[in-house]
Design a protein around this nucleic acid. Structure first.
Length: 873
RNA sequence: GGGGGAUUAGCUCAGUUGGCUAGAGCGUUUGACUGGCAGUCAAAAGGUCGACGGUUCGAUUCCGUUAUUCUCCA
C-alpha cells in the first residue's frame, strides 16, 4: 500500500466509526504562549481538554502535520543518524471528547491494524500503565482487561510512569496510556530474542506505532492530580512508521514518503544512497529538514532570528551544513529539491503547490546567507589556527570556539572537523561551560512563575461582546498571578467582555474596570487557549460581584481604523501588483500598521503612489462594513473571501467586507471606510527573499505624520528661501558651497605655498642636515601637516619642526627625511614626545612624521628651541 | 526578551600601545598600446570611517547612548 492510500484508509476507517474528519491544523502555533509548533495531534484540541473551548464533534479523526526539535526522544542533532526520527512528521489520530473510552479505543485500534492493514498479530505487543504508588495510582487493570479480549496475556507488558503515563506539560490534562509496538525483525532474529524484551528499548525494528492516551486527570501547579468530570481519548500514530511497517521496510526513509527525495538528492550530488554512511546520513538529514522547512514556510513561518523563525532557520542550516560537509555542496542546493517534494506531496497539501515560488526563494536565500556565514567563519578559524599552530599547541581554546559559534554562527562540529584536519582538538569542556553560562543567563531572564487559576465560577464561559459594545457589566470567573522579573501581573477572565484579546495581528485593548469604590486599569488583553485574558497590575479588593468594564475607546477606534485600512491595502496591492500578493504577516496597532506580503521586488515609487491613491479612493467611496459572524466556510469562499495560509478556521467563519474587499477576519473594524480619513505609506522595505513589508498610517496618525512632514518642509523653506523655487535655491546653495570649499582649498594651498617659500629661506644647514624650526601662523592643524609633506618632497635631508597656535591650543609637527631616519636613526615620534612637554601635551606618529598637541601655546618657542638643540649637537 | 559581534570608497573588505595626508581588490572615468573588440599598462575621480555625546592636546581607533544588521541563547 502506498503512503497516499494508507493515509486515506485511516481516515476512511474512523469515518466508518462515525468520526468527523477534520483538516490538519497549521504546524505553526499562534495563540499558545507555551508552544511554538504543533508537536502532537492533540494540540488543536487542547482547549477542549482544558475545558476552555469546544471540540468540533465528540468523535474526531485527522492527520496532523507536526514538528519536534526537542523532547525526551527527539533531539534535532540526532535526526538522520538513525532510521526513524524526524523533525516534521504526520500524526494520525482519533479522539473522543467525553464520548467513548478505553474499550472502543482499544477495539478499533486493534481492528484497524490487524483487519484493515493486516499486520500480523504475532508481531504486535501492547503496554499498559503499571501504576505509581507515590501518586496513589493503580495499575490500569481496565485497559489490560480490554486488551485480553484481543491479544494473549503474555504480549501485554507493563510500563512505568515514564512510558505509560502521558502528560501535556507540568500542568494540565493527563492520564495513563497504552501503546502498541510492532516487531519488524526477521523470523530468525525473533526466534533468538523475544521481542518483548526489546519493547521501549530504542531498537530500530521494535518500535511503538500507536499511543492510546486515556485522559482522566488534571495536574495542578502544586503537582496534585484531580479527576476530570469527563473522560477523553487521545491517540497518535506516527504515519511514517506505519508506512514502514505496512511497506515492509527497515527504515522510515526507505518508504515512498522519503525515497523520491533521497533519490533526487543522490542524483544532484552525484552520490548513491546506501554506499557511504556519512553521505547517507546527510541525505536523510536533508530530506527530513526540507520537509520541515517547506511546510513551515507554507504555514507562514519564515526563517528569522527569534522564536519559531529561529527554530526553522536552525533546521535549515543543519541541512546546509550536512550538504556542505558530506555532499560537497558549496553552493545553494536544497532549494532545488523542493520541486520533487512538491510533486510528491502537493496533492495532499495544496499549500505547497500554491507557494512554490516563495518557498524556493526563501530557502535559496537562506542557504546563500548561511554559506556566507560559513566562509567567514572558516576565515576567522584559519587565522586563529595559524596563530597558535607555530607554538606546537594542539588543543584549541573552547572559549574561542564558543565565540566563533555564538558571535559568528559557526557550527561547533565544523570547528572540530577543521581542527582535526590540522591535527588539533577543541577544548569541548570549556566550550560547553561557556554555552551553559549563556543558557543560564537567558533562562534567568525569562523566568516566569505562573500560579494556578483560581476559578470562581466553574460553569461560566466567556462571551465576547466587543464587536457591538465598548462597555458592559460583568463578573470575574477566574484569575491568577504571574511573576516575572520581580513584577506581579494578574490575569483576569470575565464572563462577558468588550475587550479584544490580541490576535490576528491586532493588538489587545486597554481600558479599565470599576466598582462603586475602586477602579483597576487593564493594561493589555491577550488570548490564551481560547480565553480572553485581561492583564492588570493589581486585583480588585473584592473579586466577586458585578464590575463595569470600559474599553479605551480612542485607542480601540484608531486600531479598528488601522485594521480596516490593512484590508484595503491588501486589496489595493492585489489590484496594483497582482494576485500573487499573499499576506505573510500583519501588525495592527492604534499608531500604525505593518503588512508583510509575498512580492518579488521593491515597489517603485509609482506603484506605491498607485496603491496609496487606490486605498484613499476606497476611503472616499465610504463603503459600509458588511459583517457576517457565522457564515459557513463554503459560502464564504464562494463569496471570494481571502483566507490565509497558516490560519486555522472552523466550520463557521466571520466575514468582513468593504465593497469588493472580502476577508475572513476576527478583528474589529470601522463601520465605514470614510472614518479612516486619509491613508499614507511610510515605509516600504524587504524582510526576506520574496517578502516585502509596508508600514502605513491612517486617520489621526496619518494626519500627524503628514503635518510633521509639512512642518519639516516649511522649516526648510524658511531657512533657505526668500520665496520662489526652494528646490532651485537649495541647488544653488549646494553648488555655491561646493565652489567655496574648493576656493578655500585653493587659497589655503596658495597661503601654504607662500608660507613655504618664506620658510625655505629660514633653513639652516647643519652638517648636511637641513634644519627648519619655526613658529608659523595657520588656521588649521592639517596645514602644518600639508606644509611638512610638501617640504619633504622638495628638500633633501630635511629635519623640520613647525609650531602653531590654533584656537588657543598648541600644535607641533615634526618631519624627518627618510634618509635621516634610515641613516641617523632619528625618530619623529620620540622627538615630538620629548619636546611636547613644553606645551603640556603629548604626541606621536611614525619615525618620519609625527604630530603633537598641548594646552600651553606659550611653550611653543621653548619646544622649537629644544628641537634645534637636539639636532645641532 | 538577554548576551556577543559588525557598520570604513559604488561593491567586497584591510586598517593596535589613540597621531600613517585612511588603504587594497573589483567596479567607474580618462589616456596609451591595438584596424576594431577583448586585453594589457598608466592615471584619476570617489570617504561627514552609521548617528549623537563623552574622555583627550588629538578619536576611524577608547567609553556611553542610539540606529541598522548578523549571530547565539530563551
Amino acid at each position: 500500500m502506498n503512503s497516499k492510500a494508507l493515509r486515506q484508509s485511516f481516515l476512511d476507517f474512523f469515518e466508518s466509526k462515525t468520526h468527523k474528519i477534520v483538516p490538519s491544523a497549521p504546524m505553526v502555533v499562534k495563540d499558545d504562549p507555551t508552544l511554538m509548533f504543533t508537536n502532537a495531534g492533540m494540540n488543536q484540541f487542547k482547549n477542549a481538554f482544558l475545558g476552555t473551548g469546544q471540540a468540533p464533534a465528540s468523535r474526531v479523526a485527522d492527520t496532523q502535520k507536526c514538528l519536534r526539535v526537542s523532547g525526551k526522544h527527539n533531539d534535532l542533532e540526532e535526526v538522520g543518524h538513525d532510521t526513524y526520527h524526524h523533525t516534521m512528521f504526520e500524526m494520525l489520530g482519533n479522539w473522543s471528547f467525553g464520548d467513548y473510552f478505553k474499550q472502543e479505543a482499544i477495539e478499533w485500534a486493534w481492528e484497524y491494524l490487524t483487519e484493515v492493514l493486516k499486520i500480523e498479530k504475532h508481531r504486535l505487543f501492547v503496554t499498559v500503565f503499571t501504576g505509581a504508588p507515590d501518586e496513589n495510582l493503580e495499575r490500569d487493570n481496565e485497559a489490560a482487561g480490554f486488551w485480553e479480549k484481543w491479544i494473549d496475556k503474555s504480549r501485554i507488558l507493563e510500563g512505568s510512569k515514564k512510558d505509560n503515563f502521558w502528560e501535556m506539560g507540568d500542568q494540565g490534562p493527563c492520564g495513563p496510556c497504552s501503546e502498541i509496538h510492532v516487531d519488524l525483525r526477521s523470523d530468525s532474529e525473533r526466534a533468538q530474542i523475544d521481542g518483548k524484551n526489546l519493547v521501549n528499548n530504542d531498537h530500530p525494528q521494535v518500535v511503538e506505532i500507536w499511543n492510546l492516551v486515556f485522559i482522566q486527570f488534571n495536574r495542578k501547579a502544586n503537582g496534585e492530580l484531580e479527576k476530570l468530570p469527563a473522560q477523553h481519548v487521545d491517540t497518535g500514530m506516527g504515519f511514517e512508521r506505519l508506512a514502514m511497517t505496512v511497506q515492509g521496510k527497515q527504515s522510515n526513509y526507505d518508504t515512498d514518503i522519503f525515497q523520491p527525495l533521497i533519490q533526487e538528492i543522490a542524483k544532484l550530488s552525484g552520490k548513491t544512497y546506501g554506499t557511504n554512511e556519512p553521505a547517507d546520513i546527510a541525505m536523510r538529514v536533508i530530506a527530513d529538514h526540507l520537509r520541515a522547512v517547506s511546510f513551515s514556510i507554507a504555514d507562514g513561518q519564515l526563517p528569522s532570528n527569534t522564536g519559531a523563525g529561529y527554530v526553522i532557520r536552525r533546521i535549515l542550516r543543519r541541512a546546509v551544513r550536512y550538504a556542505y560537509t558530506f555532499l560537497g555542496q558549496e553552493q545553494p542546493f536544497i532549494y532545488r529539491l523542493f520541486g520533487v517534494m512538491q510533486s510528491e506531496m502537493g496533492n495532499a497539501f495544496p499549500e505547497l503547490q500554491k507557494q512554490k515560488d516563495i518557498i524556493e526563494k526563501v530557502i535559496f536565500e537562506e542557504e546563500q546567507s548561511f554559506l556566507r556565514t560559513l566562509s567567514k567563519g572558516i576565515k576567522i578559524l584559519e587565522q586563529a589556527i595559524a596563530k597558535i599552530k607555530p607554538n606546537g599547541q594542539n588543543v584549541f581554546s573552547g572559549d574561542v570556539a564558543f565565540e566563533l559559534y555564538d558571535t559568528y554562527g559557526f557550527p561547533i562540529d565544523l570547528t572540530e572537523l577543521i581542527l582535526k584536519e590540522n591535527g588539533m582538538t577543541v577544548d569541548k569542556a570549556q566550550f560547553d561551560k561557556a554555552l551553559e553560562v549563556q543558557k543560564n543567563r537567558s533562562r534567568q531572564d525569562a523566568v516566569v512563575a505562573t500560579e494556578d487559576w483560581t476559578i470562581l465560577d466553574e460553569t461560566a464561559q466567556t462571551e465576547f461582546v466587543g464587536y457591538d459594545l465598548l462597555e458592559t457589566q460583568s463578573k470575574i470567573i477566574r484569575y491568577r498571578k504571574i511573576t516575572a522579573k520581580g513584577k506581579n501581573i494578574y490575569h483576569l477572565v470575565f464572563d462577558r467582555t468588550p475587550f479584544y484579546g490580541e490576535s490576528g495581528g491586532q493588538t489587545g485593548d486597554k481600558g479599565y474596570f470599576e466598582t462603586a469604590n475602586q477602579r483597576v486599569e487593564i493594561i493589555d488583553t491577550q488570548k490564551e487557549h481560547g480565553l480572553i485574558v485581561h492583564l492588570c497590575n493589581e486585583l480588585p479588593q473584592k473579586l466577586t460581584g458585578e464590575f463595569h468594564l470600559v474599553v479605551d475607546t480612542r485607542k480601540r477606534l484608531s486600531t479598528a481604523n488601522h485594521h480596516t485600512s490593512t484590508h484595503l491595502l491588501h486589496f489595493a496591492l492585489r489590484q496594483v501588483l497582482g494576485t500573487h500578493v499573499e499576506q505573510k504577516g500583519s501588525l495592527v496597532t492604534d499608531t500604525h500598521l505593518r503588512f508583510d506580503f509575498a512580492h518579488y521586488q521593491k515597489l517603485s515609487s509609482d506603484e506605491i503612489l498607485l496603491v496609496e491613491q487606490k486605498v484613499n479612493q476606497l476611503i472616499r467611496d465610504n463603503a459600509n462594513l458588511s459583517e457576517h459572524r457565522d457564515m459557513p466556510i463554503a459560502q464564504a469562499s464562494q463569496m471570494g473571501a481571502m483566507a490565509l495560509f497558516g490560519e486555522k478556521y472552523g466550520d463557521k467563519v466571520r466575514v468582513i467586507r468593504f465593497a469588493d474587499s472580502v476577508e475572513l477576519c476576527g478583528g474589529t473594524h470601522a463601520p465605514s471606510t470614510g472614518q479612516l480619513g486619509v491613508f499614507k505609506i511610510t515605509v516600504e522595505t524587504a524582510i526576506a527573499a520574496g517578502i516585502r513589508r509596508i508600514e502605513a498610517v491612517v486617520g489621526e496618525a496619518a494626519q500627524k505624520y503628514i503635518w510633521n512632514q509639512l512642518d519639516f518642509l516649511n522649516q526648510i523653506e524658511q531657512k533657505v528661501s526668500t520665496g520662489g523655487d526652494t528646490m532651485k535655491q537649495l541647488d544653488t546653495l549646494l553648488d555655491e558651497n561646493q565652489r567655496l570649499k574648493k576656493q578655500i582649498e585653493q587659497f589655503q594651498k596658495q597661503a601654504a605655498r607662500q608660507l613655504k617659500s618664506e620658510l625655505k629661506a629660514k633653513i639652516i644647514d647643519n652638517k648636511g642636515i637641513q634644519i627648519l624650526a619655526e613658529l608659523v601662523h595657520v588656521d588649521e592643524a592639517g596645514m602644518l601637516k600639508d606644509i611638512a609633506f610638501q617640504l619633504k618632497g622638495e628638500i633633501q635631508s630635511l629635519a623640520l619642526v613647525l609650531g602653531a597656535e590654533i584656537e588657543g591650543k598648541a600644535h607641533i609637527a615634526v618631519m624627518f627625511a627618510d634618509s635621516l631616519v634610515a641613516d641617523k636613526g632619528l625618530n619623529a615620534g620620540q622627538t615630538v614626545k620629548a619636546i611636547a612637554k613644553h606645551i603640556q601635551g603629548g604626541g606621536g606618529g611614525q619615525a618620519f612624521f609625527a604630530t603633537a598637541g598641548g594646552q600651553n601655546p606659550k611653550g611653543l618657542p621653548q619646544a622649537i628651541e629644544e628641537f634645534k638643540k637636539m639636532l645641532m649637537n
